[in-house]
Simulated assay, not measured.
Amino acid sequence: MIDFDAEVLAACQSEFGRQALYAPSGGAPIPVSGIFTDGYKSPVIDGDGNPAWTTTAPTFCVRASDLPSFPAKNDRVTIDAKQYVLMDARPDGVGWIVLPLKVAG
């Protein structure tokens, strides 16, 4: 059986990852690497033909094996000197955790 974390996730993180500082609530910050996707707004047309907006939150995806414990709401991530607050933690079942974020402030 393939070690998905070591063979696939590590390669993705190595190729596309960015350095960040992960600060668990009540714990010391640690450096981590992960894949960051900034949030965006995009226009859509609703069912009545009216313009509307849909938003996507920024996300930071990390290997579970790189974190000291499972992420919790309100943990913080600093990427390129910009601080974000963790809104949720969504494990994918194979070792990857998607962290939806919001800008701290």
Results as ranks from 00 to 15, higher is better:
residue 68 P to T: 11
residue 26 G to T: 12
residue 79 I to F: 03
residue 26 G to Y: 14
residue 20 A to L: 02
residue 42 S to R: 11
residue 4 F to L: 13
residue 38 D to I: 00
residue 72 A to G: 13
residue 49 G to H: 13
residue 55 T to R: 14
residue 12 C to P: 09
residue 22 Y to D: 09
residue 52 A to E: 01
residue 55 T to Y: 15
residue 71 P to Y: 12
residue 63 R to I: 08
residue 73 K to D: 02
residue 22 Y to S: 06
residue 61 C to F: 03
residue 47 G to I: 12
residue 92 D to R: 11
residue 33 S to H: 13
residue 88 D to S: 10
residue 24 P to N: 06
residue 8 V to M: 06
residue 105 G to R: 06
residue 32 V to N: 05
residue 81 A to I: 07
residue 77 V to Q: 01
residue 62 V to H: 02
residue 15 E to K: 11
residue 18 R to T: 06
residue 77 V to Y: 10
residue 15 E to D: 15
residue 48 D to S: 06
residue 75 D to F: 13
residue 29 P to E: 05
residue 54 T to N: 10
residue 90 R to I: 14
residue 23 A to L: 14
residue 38 D to F: 08
residue 75 D to L: 03
residue 64 A to W: 05
residue 84 Y to V: 02
residue 38 D to S: 04
residue 99 L to Y: 08
residue 65 S to Q: 14
residue 13 Q to H: 05
residue 83 Q to V: 13
residue 70 F to P: 06
residue 56 T to M: 02
residue 28 A to K: 08
residue 80 D to R: 15
residue 74 N to P: 06
residue 1 M to Y: 08
residue 76 R to F: 07
residue 94 V to E: 14
residue 49 G to E: 08
residue 29 P to D: 04
residue 43 P to H: 00
residue 11 A to T: 15
residue 100 P to T: 09
residue 34 G to Q: 10
residue 92 D to C: 03
residue 86 L to G: 00
residue 89 A to H: 06
residue 48 D to I: 08
residue 64 A to F: 09
residue 53 W to T: 05
residue 29 P to H: 12
residue 5 D to T: 08
residue 99 L to S: 13
residue 62 V to T: 08
residue 2 I to G: 04
residue 61 C to P: 01
residue 19 Q to C: 11
residue 65 S to R: 14
residue 76 R to C: 05
residue 37 T to P: 00
residue 81 A to K: 15
residue 76 R to H: 09
residue 3 D to N: 08
residue 87 M to R: 10
residue 57 A to W: 11
residue 89 A to P: 03
residue 41 K to H: 14
residue 66 D to A: 02
residue 74 N to I: 07
residue 74 N to G: 05
residue 64 A to I: 15
residue 85 V to L: 10
residue 66 D to V: 07
residue 25 S to T: 13
residue 55 T to F: 11
residue 103 V to I: 10
residue 94 V to F: 09
residue 52 A to G: 11
residue 38 D to L: 04
residue 72 A to V: 10
residue 79 I to A: 02
residue 56 T to A: 08
residue 60 F to I: 00
residue 52 A to M: 12
residue 45 I to E: 09
residue 17 G to K: 10
residue 92 D to W: 07
residue 12 C to Q: 07
residue 51 P to V: 00
residue 26 G to R: 12
residue 24 P to M: 03
residue 43 P to T: 10
residue 53 W to V: 02
residue 4 F to V: 04
residue 61 C to N: 04
residue 90 R to S: 15
residue 61 C to Q: 05
residue 105 G to M: 00
residue 97 I to Y: 03
residue 1 M to H: 05
residue 67 L to E: 13
residue 61 C to K: 08
residue 18 R to E: 00
residue 49 G to Q: 14
residue 50 N to L: 12
residue 64 A to L: 13
residue 22 Y to V: 05
residue 56 T to S: 02
residue 34 G to T: 07
residue 78 T to L: 03
residue 68 P to G: 11
